[in-house]
């Protein structure tokens, strides 16, 4: 799926117009491809993620998803996009604290209608790779934020998507765990022929992007 930004500008705050910015320019992001957005706090990373996922409307310009403008999207279209085309890791994770790790991931799977046959074995493999195997049947509210980030990443990776969009996914992970997580993300995106957009504060040198934007 092709993502086209047509002169997108936020209305709720002042932004710096730089040459390699997304704000105020026309850009096309194609999947598969890795796009890194580096920005300091308050420069609009989460706003951009909100705009991409249909959570915000305070912007000028348009975004096109495969040539269909977001301004034409109904709430039903957004639901379909979120469940089938894009998969997100939000900065505040959006996990359900009263469900177990397993339940959180399976619930998300069922909403997207993803294939259930190999789900349990995949889940075990991802949890093992992210070193949270022993946390699978614990309630999310009993995990540390770093563990929760890993759960959110697994949840996002296991859904149906054409774009994986991550908002500061490694903020509470050490370098080793962040690298492991990134390798898994890359591997899964490649398997699905999906694109990745990752927004982060740090440049994270281990993330090799096709294009880098600064906000």
């Amino acid at each position: 799926m092709k993502l086209t930004f047509n002169n997108i500008t936020p209305l709720s705050f002042e932004y710096n117009r730089k040459e390699d910015s997304i704000w105020g320019f026309n850009n096309t992001l194609e999947s598969p491809g890795v796009y890194k957005i580096i920005a300091s706090s308050g420069s609009g990373k989460s706003t951009l993620i909100g705009i991409l996922s249909g959570l915000r409307s305070d912007y000028a310009g348009t975004i096109e998803f495969d040539h269909k403008s977001s301004s034409e999207f109904t709430s039903k279209d957004w639901s379909a996009l979120r469940s089938q085309k894009i998969s997100l890791v939000y900065q505040d994770l959006r996990l359900f604290p009263n469900l177990t790790v397993r339940e959180n991931i399976l619930l998300s799977q069922e909403i997207t209608g993803a294939d259930n046959n190999t789900i349990q074995s995949e889940l075990e493999a991802f949890a093992s790779g992210m070193q949270i195997s022993n946390q699978l049947d614990k309630l999310v509210k009993h995990l540390s934020f770093g563990q929760m980030q890993r759960v959110a990443i697994i949840r996002a990776m296991m859904r149906n998507y054409e774009w994986l969009i991550l908002d500061e996914p490694f903020s509470h992970l050490d370098q080793t765990n962040a690298t492991i997580a990134w390798e898994l993300i890359l591997q899964q995106a490649k398997k699905r022929n999906a694109g990745i957009i990752i927004a982060c504060l740090d440049p994270y040198d281990f993330i090799k992007a096709d294009e880098i934007f600064h906000l």
């Binding site: 996922s53 959570l55 709430s75 039903k76 639901s79 379909a80 996009l81 979120r82 469940s83 089938q84 997100l88 939000y90 959006r94 996990l95 359900f96 619930l107 998300s108 909403i111 997207t112």
Partner: peptide
């Protein structure tokens, strides 16, 4: 918050 999270996952509001 929970409703918002479900909607963000693509759960239909209907």
């Amino acid at each position: 918050n929970e409703i918002d999270s479900l909607l963000r996952l693509g759960y239909m509001h209907s």
